[in-house]
Design a protein around this nucleic acid. Structure first.
Lengths: 150, 150
DNA sequence: CAGCCCAAGTTCCTTGAGGGAACTCCGATT
DNA sequence: AATCGGAGTTCCCTCAAGGAACTTGGGCTG
């Protein structure tokens, strides 16, 4: 964990990092998203230390991003995305697009995504929620909002 | 920096984290994006240690995400986004959307974005690059791609 | 032309997070 | 009663982050 508390900054990026910015957190979410929901599965798949995995899972549950759910009468638990957590998958999809484009190299993307609506292999793209046109870094002007710092 | 090398995993999310997953890196990119391009500006705005800022900047330059550019005959430098870095701003915009939605609280978003194309305050949304329909975590099936691990 | 200024780092020390392996706990199965 | 297996917990070690002071190198000022 970073020592500096990002959560207290007047910046939604910093606050988001406070929730999932620690090492491993996005990869844990990815695994839970694709159906690896149990402690030992996650630990083996990621190669993460059990100690750190415990810390991350409890933190993500505290933040309301994951839900800890028993699946047996024995003390056995699965982790699932909450609505809040499911919306973080948008972030993972954009990371995937960028990594596929800039880091995949000769071999090509390690994973492809088929879109249910059209049935095609595709990837996510950013568009303006208002007009539907593409919306990237150079297409916007930042303005102070209601929650701006003094 | 995390001890485990994410860059060697067969996963575009892990590889992307290897580039910008360290603490502060996304916030550095945000500042450079909005025009804070000099060492002391960044240090003062973020409250980051000078040592760590130096490390992050050289790493981001090495990764081809930032460019170090002299702006004086004295040894003075500005950092700018490369094309590769500018495309990472997509990620920042999605983080902003999520943070605005889930973490802004009563006060509302600290920053608003006006979209050049339509002139409205808006935010980014994910759509399928192929059919243009919305594309979120639940709308896709992952399949092994050409660069999949053995 | 000596001394000062300023941006951009560098050095050094302390604290604390990540890695790894071994250990515990607890209900079910044989 | 003994064993198993998932889900953590504990302990120790190393290395990264914070913080403050120091250095460097070219202009500028008196």
């Amino acid at each position: 964990m970073q020592r500096t508390k990002f959560g207290e900054m007047a910046c939604s990026i910093a606050r988001t990092l406070d929730v999932i910015g620690e090492p491993w957190s996005p990869l844990i979410l990815r695994d839970v998203w694709v159906g690896m929901t149990r402690f030992d599965q996650l630990q083996a798949d990621l190669g993460i230390s059990r100690k750190v995995l415990t810390e991350r899972l409890t933190y993500l549950v505290d933040q309301g991003v994951l839900e800890r759910r028993p699946y047996d009468r024995r003390p056995r638990y699965e982790y699932h995305l909450t609505t809040k957590g499911a919306e973080l998958v948008d972030l993972l999809m954009v990371m995937t697009s960028w990594g596929d484009r800039w880091l995949a190299g000769e071999a090509g993307p390690p994973v492809l995504y088929r879109h249910h609506a059209c049935g095609e292999i595709s990837h996510a793209e950013l568009r303006c929620a208002h007009c539907g046109e593409p919306m990237h870094g150079g297409d916007v002007d930042p303005l102070p909002g209601p929650g701006a710092a003094v």
